[in-house]
C-alpha cells in the first residue's frame, strides 16, 4: 500500500507505514455524518448505563435459575464458573425452546445442560456499533459485557433502543434550533 501521507511504498498487509508510522486502519473507517453516527462509532460501551449482571454458578439447577430470574426481574442470567468467568447465558428463550413441554421434572436438572454456551460478548472499551452489529446480525436480545473474561454488565435490546432514541431526539432538537 502506498502511504497517503508520505507516498512510501509499503508491503501488502502492513498495518502501519514503515516510513512515517501512519496507521492505515483509520483510512478504512467510515466517516460519521451526524451526531448519532458519531456517537455510535466512537462512544464506548461504558457510556451506556451499566446494569450489574445477574449471575449464577454452573452448579445451579433450572429451578434455582428460574427463581433468580423471577426475583431479580430479568430475562437472562449469566452463567459463571468458580473463578467468575463467563461460560454461558441462560435466557427466557432457552426456557421456551428447550425445556417447557419437553422435559419433565426440569427444576432439578443442571443449568449447564440448557444454557447457551460461550455467548457473543463485547468488552467495556468496544464501541457501540459492535454491540449493534452483534445484536442485529445475530438476533440477540442480550449481549454480555466482559472485562478480562468476567461479566461486568449486560446490554439489552431495550437499552440500545433507549440510547438511540434519546440521541436522535437530541440531534433533532439541535438541528431544529440551528436551522
Amino acid at each position: 500500500m502506498i502511504c497517503p501521507s508520505c507516498c512510501h511504498k509499503n508491503l501488502p498487509g502492513d498495518e502501519v507505514c514503515r516510513h512515517c508510522k501512519q496507521p492505515f486502519a483509520l483510512f478504512d473507517l467510515p466517516h460519521p455524518e451526524n451526531q448519532v453516527e458519531r456517537s455510535v462509532m466512537y462512544d464506548q460501551v461504558k457510556t451506556l448505563k451499566q446494569h450489574p449482571p445477574v449471575t449464577i454458578g454452573e452448579k445451579a439447577s433450572i429451578g434455582e435459575a428460574m427463581a433468580l430470574m423471577t426475583s431479580s426481574n430479568v430475562g437472562a442470567l449469566l452463567v459463571v464458573d468458580a473463578e467468575g468467568n463467563l461460560t454461558g447465558i441462560f435466557s427466557e428463550r432457552d426456557l421456551l425452546k428447550k425445556i417447557v413441554g419437553l422435559e419433565n421434572g426440569f427444576a432439578k436438572l443442571p443449568i449447564t445442560q440448557f444454557m447457551t454456551p460461550r455467548p457473543e460478548s463485547v468488552s467495556t472499551t468496544d464501541t457501540l456499533n459492535f454491540v449493534l452489529q452483534k445484536m442485529d446480525a445475530g438476533g440477540y436480545r442480550h449481549v454480555p459485557v466482559l472485562e478480562n473474561g468476567k461479566p461486568v454488565s449486560i446490554i439489552s435490546a431495550r437499552d440500545m433502543l433507549r440510547f438511540l432514541t434519546r440521541l436522535s431526539k437530541e440531534a433533532g432538537e439541535r438541528g431544529a434550533s440551528t436551522s
Partner: peptide, 14 residues
C-alpha cells in the same frame, strides 16, 4: 425497531 434504527447508519454497523 432496533433493526430499523440500524438501517439508518448501515456503514457504521455493517
Amino acid at each position: 425497531i432496533v433493526h430499523y434504527l440500524v438501517e439508518h447508519f448501515p456503514t457504521m454497523v455493517y
